[in-house]
């Protein structure tokens, strides 16, 4: 039963990843593209966690943790670049 649920969750987040990719390509605003990138990062974190459960070993948790941090910093950096034309003032 857990395997079925795991496959279902992986399918959901994979479809979500593709859908956000579409928004990233199409998005009329820069804000839309940043939002799509941020959502992709969150989806990828979820996929990494699910892959750990699939393997049954917690080897990739550090990767998920690092991605959570780097994703946040990159989103803020993009936004500041568009807002001020500069990242560190």
């Amino acid at each position: 039963m857990m395997t079925v649920a795991l496959v279902f969750a992986i399918a959901c987040f994979s479809v979500g990843l593709l859908v956000t990719l579409w928004r990233l390509v199409k998005g009329p605003d820069p804000a839309d593209r940043i939002l799509a990138l941020d959502t992709m990062v969150i989806n990828v974190i979820a996929l990494i966690l699910l892959y750990c459960m699939w393997l049954g070993r917690p080897v990739y948790f550090e990767a998920a943790l690092l991605l959570a941090m780097v994703g946040f910093v990159s989103t803020v950096a993009y936004c500041r670049f568009i807002l001020r034309g500069d990242i560190i003032e």
């Binding site: 969750a9 959901c12 987040f13 479809v15 979500g16 990843l17 859908v19 956000t20 928004r23 939002l35 799509a36 959502t39 969150i42 989806n43 979820a46």
Partner: peptide, 8 residues
């Protein structure tokens, strides 16, 4: 997660 992406 899927709803969040679909809403996007």
């Amino acid at each position: 997660g899927l709803v969040g992406s679909v809403g996007l």
